[in-house]
Computed example of a mutant assay.
Amino acid sequence: MPHLTTHVLDAGSGRPAAGVGVTLRTAAGEVLATGETDADGRTGLGPDVLPRGDLELRFDTGAYHRASGTPTFHPYVVVAFSVTGTGHLHVPLLLSPFAYSTYRGS
Rank of each mutant, 00 (worst) to 15 (best):
H7E: 10
A27F: 04
G14H: 09
D60Y: 00
Y100I: 03
P51T: 14
V91W: 00
A18V: 02
R52M: 01
D40Y: 05
T37I: 01
A11G: 08
F73C: 09
L55H: 06
L89F: 13
F98E: 12
T86S: 14
T34D: 03
G87E: 10
D48M: 11
D60K: 05
G62R: 06
V78S: 07
V49G: 12
D38S: 04
S82M: 01
M1Q: 13
T26Y: 04
F59G: 01
T23G: 08
A39Q: 13
G21Y: 07
S13Q: 14
V8L: 02
Y100W: 15
T23N: 04
Y76V: 04
T23C: 05
P71C: 10
H65C: 10
T61M: 07
T61Y: 08
F73K: 15
L4D: 07
T34P: 08
G87N: 08
Y76H: 15
A63W: 00
T6S: 06
T6V: 03
L93Y: 03
V49S: 13
L93G: 05
R52G: 12
L24T: 06
L50F: 06
L4H: 05
R42V: 07
H3K: 15
G46W: 07
V91E: 09
D38T: 08
R66P: 00
P97W: 05
Y100H: 07
V31H: 01
L50V: 05
D54V: 15
G46Y: 06
R15C: 09
D48V: 13
S96F: 00
R58P: 02
S82W: 07
A33N: 06
V91S: 00
P2H: 08
A33C: 07
P47I: 02
A39T: 13
V8Q: 04
G12S: 13
F59E: 00
E30M: 10
G69H: 04
G85T: 10
L89R: 14
H7M: 08
D40I: 00
R58K: 09
L45M: 02
L95C: 10
L89D: 11
T61D: 09
G44T: 11
L93V: 07
G44V: 08
V20S: 00
G21I: 02
G44R: 14
V79Q: 15
L57F: 03
G29Q: 09
V22H: 02
T23Y: 07
D54C: 11
T43M: 02
A28D: 13
D40L: 15
H88V: 11
T26V: 02
P97S: 02
H88P: 12
H90E: 14
D60S: 12
S82C: 02
L55W: 00
A18N: 07
P16F: 12
G69D: 03
A33M: 00
V79K: 13
